[in-house]
Design a protein around this nucleic acid. Structure first.
Length: 597
RNA sequence: GCACCCGUAGCUCAGCUGGAUAGAGCGUUGCCCUCCGAAGGCAAAGGUCGCAGGUUCGACUCCUGCCGGGUGCGCCA
């Protein structure tokens, strides 16, 4: 039940009628007509810009088209009033029954209300993908929550969602991790290792891994060649750290369907890197060439030589990108190209990558590689590929500035002062972390104040929304004293006479509930879960407001001891409100409690 | 140097893909509990939407150029 789509459909049908009758040009291509709730309630329930957007293609004056449409709309039994306003808006007031049907729909459809019909299109969303070289810290948190909520949102909107985590378990960094683990292993055997050398991982979290290696192998590893030691240490460390990352994510209720190993690209008898390079070569996108020395490149590793390049400039990238290092091994980028090649082979309709702001410079080459492999074009501006077998969107989460009571918490990996994700969740709780991470546009920077998010009222929208849900629940508890049969699921509530909901505050609440499906569709299409968080805040505000009007004016109270039928109707409204809050919070991954602690 | 993001009320930010008189929270000022949960509500004050052009019926929104702030740049991962 989507009132907006319903009315849009009516208007589209009426425009076809007008074409058939010759009032509009028969060959007129109908543009997208919007129906929306006007800001000013005096402008009716809904407004459409149909006459204005049609004016140009029809080569008619907006007011003339509006006049034609007004006559047709006025004849619609569901529309009580139509007015032409401003440059050509059509302001409509619907008969109350249309709005009342929304309540019925919410109570009937339950948690399915507002969801997509299910086109069955598949979407692969990759997020977190933190290197398995240490525990999760707060910097990973935003992308993790955002990706998870976006997955929920797309799922709710009707997509078939696969959530994926790319494990960087190949390359020099994890080799260093392996060497670091072996140091801890020797330490656990009683050696004095002293200061951890520059370039290795000094974190305490590798000590248990060293100890576990002792338990598994005793002193036997010391007899093996260094490379073999390193490999064993590396594999043990990756496995242990990945477990830790999974459990860190679990504290935030975040899960992935697929953990994709970088190393698996080139093991098990296949070489996706070679295959992807071959695919690019077939399109003439591989060349030998030299790269300019980058600005500010100060270390001594630079070597000017001819090498294998991906011609990403052909799609608008700043420079061509190297695929092989001077030692003959693949670059990180080559692996990532292969990973996307593999993804495309798995055949999804849409792909989404969630990136941290520290990787924005990497975005163009990924888009370009994807477009080259999927056969599309690139819009660097929109950070997406267009056309081809499938399209990729890259979404960016800006940095989180961690604060405590207004003071910036400085983080440094070297000094070991980074804030562990698990500590934050332990300190402030899962719900506030999730909600606050989503209570901001993803590509705007976010201040996260550890002191403020635990406050139970001020500056803390999550409690405000949860309180609305709990309050709705408590009304039902109270009403049972007076009307024991008016339970949430009862037919008496479900079939209440909704015509009794006539107070302006109640009607506003209903109209806002009716907006939920449109909001979900818009948020999903634009990949913006934060819209949901703001909507829920707004809805809660309306609900709290209606409650308080009952404090001042007893006849507006939800429970009317003297009037059973009005009480039943209002309970239906409350049940619907509670349902939408609950559905919305579920998408955000935040609990909808029946009682505040 | 180049790319991207941000610039909206004193502060922190929304603004539903171009709609009508630009909104909310905090802060400030003044109100509302013998009453369904005051963890709440109502009201007032507060604006050259960074600046200048352009596109059109119409711009906070799209385009161009400036000015400020942030992030990034590799044969690293």
């Amino acid at each position: 039940m989507n009132v907006y789509r319903h009315v849009e459909g009516r208007i589209a049908a009426l425009l076809e009628t007008l074409k058939a009758e010759g009032a509009l040009p028969a060959d007129l291509a109908l543009p997208v007509v919007e129906v929306e709730a006007p800001r000013d309630p005096a402008h009716g329930d809904l407004a459409t810009n149909a006459a204005m957007v049609l004016a140009k293609p029809a080569r008619m004056r907006p007011r003339d088209i509006a006049e034609l449409l007004k006559v047709k709309l006025a004849a619609d039994p569901e529309i009580a009033k139509v007015e032409i306003a401003g440059p050509g808006f059509l302001n409509m007031t619907l008969v109350p029954q249309v709005w009342q049907r929304v309540i019925t729909a919410i109570l009937t459809e339950g948690k399915a209300f507002g969801g997509g019909t299910g086109s069955g299109e598949t979407v692969n969303i990759e997020y977190v993908s933190a290197n398995p070289t240490g525990p999760m810290h707060i910097g990973h948190c935003r992308g993790a929550v955002f990706g998870d909520a976006l997955g929920n949102l797309l799922d709710f909107a009707g997509f078939k969602v696969t959530r994926e985590y790319y494990i960087n378990d190949a390359g020099a960094q994890v080799d260093k991790l392996g060497r670091s683990a072996i140091l801890r292993y020797r330490e656990a055997l009683g050696e004095t290792v002293g200061e951890i050398p520059e370039g290795l991982y000094p974190g305490e979290y590798l000590k248990p891994i060293g100890a576990a290696l002792v338990k598994a192998h005793g002193r036997a590893l010391l007899q093996k060649p260094e490379d073999e030691q390193m490999a064993i240490g590396r594999d043990a460390a990756i496995a242990a750290l990945l477990d830790e990352i999974r459990s860190d994510l679990a504290t935030l209720n975040i899960r992935h369907d697929v953990f994709f190993s970088e190393r698996s690209l080139t093991t098990g008898g296949k070489d996706q890197v070679r295959a992807s390079i071959a695919a690019l070569e077939a399109n003439g996108l591989i060349a030998k060439g030299r790269l300019e020395r980058p600005k500010d490149h100060d270390d001594g590793e630079w070597e000017d030589r001819e090498q294998t390049l991906f011609k990403s400039t052909a799609f608008g990238d700043d420079a061509d990108r190297a695929l092989m290092k001077s030692d003959g091994s693949y670059t990180y980028f080559a692996g990532d190209v292969a990973y996307h090649f593999d993804k495309i082979e798995r055949g999804f309709d849409h792909y989404i990558n969630v990136f941290g702001a520290d990787h924005i410079g990497y975005i163009p080459r990924i888009l370009v590689a994807f477009a080259a492999l999927a056969g599309g074009t690139v819009s660097l501006k929109e950070r997406r590929t267009i056309g081809g077998k499938a399209n990729l969107d890259i979404l960016v989460c800006q940095l989180v500035k961690v604060m405590r009571a207004g003071e910036i918490v400085r983080m440094s990996k070297r000094a070991g002062t980074f804030v562990a994700l698990r500590d934050v969740v332990d300190e402030v709780g899962r719900d506030p972390v999730r909600f606050m991470m989503l209570y901001r546009k993803n590509d705007a920077p976010l201040d996260f104040d550890l002191a403020k998010v635990v406050e139970q009222s001020k500056d803390n929208p999550v409690f405000y929304v949860q309180y609305a849900h709990a309050r709705a629940f408590s009304v039902f508890g109270k009403s049972l004293d007076l009307f024991p049969d008016l339970t949430r699921e009862s037919a008496a509530v479900r079939n209440a006479d909704l015509a009794l909901l006539s107070d302006p505050g109640e009607l506003q609440l209903i109209q806002q509930l009716a907006f939920f499906p449109k909001l979900v569709a818009g948020a999903a299409a634009s990949r913006e879960p934060h819209r949901l968080a703001f909507y829920l805040y707004d809805l809660s505000s309306n609900f709290h407001g209606q409650w308080s009007r009952g404090n001042d004016s007893p006849h507006l109270r939800f429970i009317r001891p003297d009037n059973r039928s009005v009480t039943a109707a209002r309970l239906a409204l409350i049940a619907a409100t509670q349902q939408v809050i609950s559905s919305g919070l579920a998408i955000l991954g935040v609990e909808a409690p029946n009682m505040m602690r």
